[in-house]
Deep mutational scan, measured.
Amino acid sequence: QKPVSAYALFFRDTQAAIKGQNPNATFGEVSKIVASMWDSLGEEQKQVYKRKTEAAKKEYLKALAAYR
């Protein structure tokens, strides 16, 4: 399975908490809140997710090379 983006990892980590705080929110509303949070996130915090994405990408490429 291809690795997901840094934003997708952040979304996955954040979505449940947002939904818990806003139980009646639609998926679209939750998405807007998470997107706003991502935009206001500091670069250092974004780097945490970007590093996770890079590590997953390297593992994916290694597994793909081994498969071929």
Score class of each variant (00 low, 15 high):
K52S: 08
K46C: 01
K2V: 07
S31W: 01
E43H: 06
G20L: 14
D13G: 01
Y7A: 03
T14N: 05
K46S: 01
R68P: 15
D13P: 00
T14Y: 14
E43D: 08
E54G: 05
E29R: 02
A16R: 12
I18W: 01
K46V: 03
R12T: 08
D39C: 11
R12L: 02
A66M: 09
T26V: 01
G28H: 11
A8L: 06
V4E: 15
A17L: 10
E29S: 04
K62V: 03
E43K: 07
V30D: 00
A6W: 01
T14M: 13
A66E: 15
T26E: 08
S5D: 14
I33A: 09
E54N: 09
A56F: 02
Y67D: 15
V34I: 08
E44D: 13
G42R: 06
R12M: 11
Y7R: 06
A16K: 12
T53G: 13
Y67R: 15
Q15R: 05
E29N: 02
R12G: 06
A6R: 01
L9T: 11
D39W: 07
F27W: 09
D39F: 08
Q45W: 02
A6T: 02
V30Q: 05
G28K: 11
Q1K: 15
W38C: 01
N24A: 07
G42T: 13
G28T: 11
I18C: 01
S40H: 10
I18S: 01
A63F: 02
A63V: 07
E59W: 02
E43M: 06
L41R: 01
I33D: 01
L41H: 01
M37C: 07
A56V: 11
K52Q: 05
A16M: 04
T26F: 00
E29W: 08
I33H: 05
S31T: 09
T26H: 08
A25F: 10
P3S: 11
D39M: 07
W38V: 00
K58N: 10
Q1E: 04
L61W: 07
Q47T: 04
Q47M: 09
S5F: 05
S5Q: 03
A65E: 14
G42W: 00
Y60M: 12
W38I: 00
E43Q: 12
N24Y: 02
D39A: 11
Q15D: 02
E44S: 09
Q1D: 15
Y7V: 02
A65F: 09
T14Q: 14
N24F: 08
Q1W: 05
E44V: 07
A8I: 03
